[in-house]
Amino acid sequence: MKALKIVVLAKQVPDTRNVGKDAMKADGTVNRAALPAIFNPEDLNALEQALRVKDQIPGTKVILLTMGPGRAAEVIREGLYRGADEGYLLTDRAFAGADTLATSYALACAIRKINDVDLIFAGRQAIDGDTAQVGPQVAEKMHLPQVTYVEEITEIKKGKITLKRRLERGVESVECPMPCVVTVNGSAPTCRPRNAKALMKYKHARTVTEQQDSSEDYITLYTERPYLAIPEWSVNDIESDLQQLGLTGSPTKVKKIENIVFQAKEARKIESNDEGIEDLMKELIENHTLG
């Protein structure tokens, strides 16, 4: 079967399980620098699906694409360690402050530049926003069909892919012509771990900016082994309409950010012994909360 070209959209996200007070900037956008950054969990599920296609169809190429600040190159390296073939970092101040629509537009432009892509995989949603919008919006921007909430690829044959979707109350199997966009659920198989060989091979993979910042003298390394250079694309490297990028291209604006404060109540303490529990149950029965 013809080898495929697969793009996996990956996002570096703040670990929202540990959010401090300085997480937001005054303008209401996220202060990513103040938070530990991780590979968005469902994007790892998406990467695994892409790698499974590669296992099955020899010659298939898995290409990571991420948009973010310079340190998002970490996501590319992580993907390379786990079996991806190459990765691109889309980074420019012109992309900053983008909502899902402007993000999707930028990603779609980059995918067009990668060119001749058969499949685009992404996690269903990212844990910092939980919107699940970027996958479908990339699909729309590229005029491609989309299949969301995917748990499994059942078949790839004659230019078509068959996928199993996990919905609220059941499953659905759909057949979709390629190219298409597929978003993968967290219930899909977890991503394989780092591969020792790949880790050795890509340990020194760096973007140009990182190469310049690196105090060690690796310059010859990158001329000898070009696969260690992670391409960094700015707004000048993709064909795009500036009006549709970043804050300018974002129809939604953050008006206000508030911390959540819950009204504390004066709770009654109940002893966990027999007497305490029996009194509580009696009280709840008597005031008709129970029974």
């Binding site: 959010v19 950010i257 911390n259």
Partner: peptide, 20 residues
Amino acid sequence: YQIRPAFGGNIVATIINPDK
């Protein structure tokens, strides 16, 4: 005013679409 939690529910954001 589209009011939603963000950041794993740690904050509440009010989102508007002024022009579109």
